[in-house]
Design a protein around this nucleic acid. Structure first.
Lengths: 228, 228
DNA sequence: AGATGAGAGTAGACAATGTCAACATCGTGA
DNA sequence: TCACGATGTTGACATTGTCTACTCTCATCT
């Protein structure tokens, strides 16, 4: 039972904040190894607890990964929000959001893939609520910029405009999403020119959106499914 | 295909075409379970061989998945090519390609994610050559439609136009890629309206591309990295 | 204060998996 | 014919996710 390594200091029986420690360890390992195939036991080792301690905080590995994913969403939403600060032009704000989005994905591909890669949830077992809300808060930032006139004219955030806004977001989001993943997979490049590259796609898309803004509406929802 | 073990017939010691059998089993399991977390042993069981037989054909699980992914690329390229047949208008051909692309992804998300999800290769260990070439052949189909005038005017496939073409493909591809993954993850929907939805995004993008076609060029490559 | 009970951590066990090594079986070319 | 290489098989091992049963700690109730 003598597990103390140091001289007299002994780790208290209870960790104190294992939940957080495990999630942070997971984020570390994920960032380092760029893979979700680490073991719960490894995390337990890093946290200095027994291999089964994490199970007091997460039902299974899936749930742990969901928690990590949620942190990823929060980080991303925060970055996107931060990027818009001190920017007046709505179009510039939307562009900044896009840059933050792509940048976040490129900087930590494994986390990005965990968030959007469908390891969690599909149509079957919906992803945990904590994730949904995090993803939803991301959308809000985009909505704001668009309503403020990022596409060339004000679009009041009213029920009547819902479909227009969602249509625009759909295009915006899928373009950024696709670009991010292509970059991450090194399927387009070169990686040195990522910013230049994104900028071209981004501006082109914004112009395209501005041009066809009244015709976009299709029956669409964007973000977490509404009927739930 | 006499695989029967019925009464007295005994399976010959050697399978005959285990390589193919394993890949097909993997495709089956992948399609059914929509997860890459099946075991090699399971595939071996399905093929009716010992748990270690697959190792005579694949160095490890990664290599097996790479082979599956390659098949996926071939299937997708074929569908895209088929979709363009009997279509005269280049723009219609490009639209058909896009539909085939999105459709392929939505119909088998797990396979699509395996192909593009970066489970294999990153910038570190490049993905197997077999995959690269398959992915590259996909690009060729798109190039053709664009050069033929899908964006409103002919763009001869010359070295001088490389950047314009690659720029257009980048936008096209990332838009389709992103849309596919958003649909697959049920992050946008509703799923019943997938076609209508895709159509809106698609046409909007094509119009946008047509409008800014001369200004697109950025220093870009699309497809497998050229310096290799 | 002392009992107690729930939350948090530990220890041990189990089946399944990826992978290694040693052996068996077949078709084939020298 | 016969040895050899490709293909399959068996057995073994460390690791993993997860279950069950146990222990420790501390706040709360009497």
């Amino acid at each position: 039972m003598t597990k103390d390594i140091s001289t007299t200091e002994q780790r208290p029986y209870h960790h104190g904040d294992l939940h957080r420690a495990i999630v942070e360890a997971a984020l570390d390992v994920l960032s380092e190894s760029q893979s979700t195939e680490f073991s719960l036991r490894e995390l337990a080792r890093r946290a200095g607890v027994s291999h089964n301690a994490p199970y007091k905080h997460f039902a299974d590995k899936r749930e742990l990964l969901a928690a990590v994913s949620a942190v990823g969403f929060e980080l991303l939403a925060k970055r996107m929000a931060d990027a818009t600060k001190e920017l007046d032009s709505p179009r510039e704000r939307l562009a900044a959001i896009a840059r933050a989005y792509v940048c976040g994905g490129v900087n930590n591909p494994a986390l990005y893939r965990l968030m959007f890669g469908g390891y969690l949830g599909g149509q079957d077992n919906g992803r945990p609520a904590i994730e949904r809300t995090a993803a939803y808060s991301m959308k809000a930032v985009v909505v704001e910029a668009i309503c403020d006139g990022a596409l060339g004219r004000l679009i009041p955030n009213t029920a009547a405009n819902t479909r227009t806004i969602d249509g625009a977001i759909l295009i915006f989001w899928s373009q950024m999403h696709g670009l991010t993943l292509l970059l991450v997979d090194s399927l387009v490049g070169p990686s040195g020119k990522i910013e230049e590259l994104s900028e071209g796609v981004l501006q082109g898309m914004l112009d395209g959106l501005s041009n066809c803004i009244p015709e976009i509406p299709v029956g669409v929802w964007v973000g977490p499914p509404p009927a739930e």
